[in-house]
């Protein structure tokens, strides 16, 4: 799905988290929102997911105005920074949650839900953990379960907030490849937030560099490296 962000701004009380920003994300792209802490990355991602509403501006999905669309109707697969797995449910029930939440008419049968959950567990290469609770998983496993849960709703786009933030370097590298693979097989427009410029450059097709609520530069990783548009970008990517 093609995502168009048109002059979106957001302020919380007196603090401006986002100055008007505009951005066009081509269908099927893997996009990194890159920037230091407090630059507005999470805010922009939450606006895309419908968890936050912009103070001004519009969000367009495939050319249609989606600004007022409710979080449920956006069908965005959202992976939270702390994963936000349902702690009182098994991994199986976590992944099945979105399917069970559908209205009766479009809800798959129990057997069909079980089949899809099993398939997703295979996709994230953790076929045997369906009966476990989130507290019985490692950080990397939790992250993959969160991804499977988001994919279960057959989302129109994938939004991930610092998906690898809380993991050690080795697991991070593995999961990066995992995300790339899942993106390539599903073809979903995917936006992930990171403050790690190496991660952004390595993984993304398109990198959006942000600072203090503004977009500093949008471009392919190699273009941003070769031709930083502002002194901030130059300093940030060479760090």
């Amino acid at each position: 799905m093609h995502i168009e962000i048109d002059e979106i701004s957001k302020s919380f009380g007196t603090t401006a988290a986002l100055h008007p920003v505009s951005l066009s994300l081509p269908s099927g792209a893997l996009v990194a929102l890159l920037g230091p802490s407090g630059s507005g990355k999470t805010t922009l991602l939450r606006i895309l997911g419908g968890l936050e509403f912009p103070s001004s501006g519009r969000v367009m999905f495939d050319g249609q105005d989606a600004t007022g669309l409710s979080v449920q109707d956006r069908r965005a697969g959202f992976v939270f920074q702390s994963y936000a797995l349902f702690r009182h449910m098994t991994v199986f029930d976590n992944i099945a949650y979105g399917l069970n939440a559908r209205p009766r008419a479009s809800r798959p049968t129990k057997a069909e839900i079980a089949r899809r959950v099993t398939k997703l567990l295979e996709l994230i290469q953790l076929p045997d953990i369906g009966a476990r609770y989130p507290s019985q998983l490692s950080g990397g496993q939790r992250q993959r379960v969160a991804l499977a849960r988001a994919l279960a709703i057959e989302p129109r786009m994938l939004l991930l907030d610092e998906p690898f933030g809380a993991l050690d370097a080795k697991v991070r590298k593995e999961l990066r490849q995992g995300l790339r693979d899942i993106h390539d097989t599903t073809g979903l427009t995917t936006v992930f937030v990171t403050h790690d410029q190496e991660e952004a450059m390595e993984l993304a097709d398109l990198v959006v560099v942000m600072s203090m609520g503004r977009i500093e530069q949008i471009g392919k990783p190699q273009d941003i490296r070769a031709r930083p548009a502002t002194p901030f970008v130059r300093a940030f990517v060479s760090a």
């Binding site: 979080v71 449920q72 349902f86």
Partner: peptide, 12 residues
């Protein structure tokens, strides 16, 4: 966060 996650998964 858990409530927000449930909302994004389509729950009322």
């Amino acid at each position: 966060a858990e409530e927000e996650a449930a909302l994004t998964l389509g729950a009322s």
